[in-house]
Design a protein around this nucleic acid. Sequence first.
RNA 1: GCUCCGGUCGUCUAGCGGUUAGGACAUCGCCCUUUCACGGCGAAGGUCGCGGGUUCGAAUCCCGUCCGGAGUACCA
Length: 519
Amino acid sequence: MSVRVRFAPSPTGLLHIGALRTVLFDFVFAARHGGTNILRIEDTDRERYNPESEAEFIETLAWVGITFQEGPHVGGPHGPYRQSERKEAGIYAKWIQVLLEKGHAYKAFETKEELDEMREFQQVNKQPTGYFGGNWRDASPEKVAEAEAAGKPYVIRQRIPRDRKVVTEDFIRGRVEFDSNTLPDPVLIKADGMPTYHFAAMVDDHLMEITHVLRGEEWISSFPYHWVLFEQFGWTPPVFVHCPVIVGTDGKKLSKRHGATRVLDYAAQGYLKGSLKNFIALIGWSPGDDRELLTEAELIASFSLEGLQPSPGRFDIEKLKWINGNEIRSMSPDACLGALLDYINTPYTREYWEAFVDENPMPNKPPIDGKQIWARLDRVRAAAAQDREYLTKAIAEEQARVTTLADFGEAVEFFLLEEPPMDAKAVEKWFGQSHVPALLDTIEAAVKANPNLDIDGFQELLIGFQTEQGFEKLGPVVHPTRVALTGKTFGPGLYQLMAILGPDRILARLARARTLLTS
RNA sequence: GCUCCGGUCGUCUAGCGGUUAGGACAUCGCCCUUUCACGGCGAAGGUCGCGGGUUCGAAUCCCGUCCGGAGUACCA
């Protein structure tokens, strides 16, 4: 039997990191076994339905490159793939009828107020809360018929068998047992006629021939209802795999406070999809050996359910940064620039940075200015249009020095600006020394004499100046030059940087540096 | 309260009765070097939550306990 898995989000909001990992596992698992990955939209909650949500899913999934063989956007033999449409098609009505006839479900006519009252009573008396039968589990057919005839609204509940154990099977944890007397009768069909998750998801999983259900650990609590439902229908259940949750650095569920929780925000921050997938796969799963850097193909080739862990994992952004920096370094300069431009040209990147507010600024550093970050990235875009070759060289030099695509804006700034900002401290430290005017003169003369100086040429030039001046170390010649040319005390190798800058920029910057010497 | 789940360096993890408990991120040091990175090498960091068993032998099996988490909706 071939593997069929499904990602079944509820269109109520954004696609967050935890959900992304679940789909990643679906996708990779299906790919590993040549199976089918299915997208199903669980829009049975009219109140929380958010029409923008489905587009958010599609956009996010498209960005990370997770594809589906069946779903509302591509169709398939088991459609429709939206539960609201399945409801219209009468699918749930048909199957709830089966349950009703078998006596595994019943109509309950309590009002919302009555249920609230009951729950309050249970809480006050420290009893387990929930509906354990009320007035309707054992009501006579006449009583039910009467209530129905009177037009009273009702829900349909699952009749959980009493006085027995429900022995479920979770792939990761093995046997998980529940005392059926602690399980309230869950609602299967709401008063508005819509099915609940408990009903719709199980019916659909069966009808769509899902072989493995990968879902969040938070479902374990309601797992026994689902298990019993399969029993009551007489269906063989799929393999249930409850994946551990991803928590923030403080051990609590991932939220805004931990940085971004929306997947597209990571894209906007300059993380690469490959790195994000690599990183996220490693939370709660391991290939069983020591590999940590995995391409998507390797992920697929080595993925197995056995590598899944039961305990929750923390989202450690530092590790993501490492993986991301690594991927950036592994790209050819050309490919890297391509990725950078794709990133900059994604509308949400600009939107994200322009609206960015630094909520937890570092104590000793000024808060991050999103508008400035965008301004720098925008400059990169302009530079690409103007002189792509020059930009590519600059990118190549900075690849080892950044961790996200967004970092390139600042890293490459001094290459692009006619007059890069000067670090005042650096100017103070290096421009006061008496040999500096002569140094600048020497470079100027050499560049004018030979505009085509290459890396070796610049090295020769500066070392020549060093020996001429009798300096033991290269520092006194290299540092002032670097400050004069870049405004900074750090960056790529000076000779390669000069070779890239070229004679015109060098001359212009030397001239500017000279004005700072006198003042 | 009740029901479940979980617990190996700060973090992600390997481990499935016999290992000096391995790797990675982060941290620190050294090397490379004109700087910053990258890279290389190395260090520190774990009485495997705790307490009992079982066993010649336990991170690994059993029981208890503590702590953390999830659920407890006509939400998913």
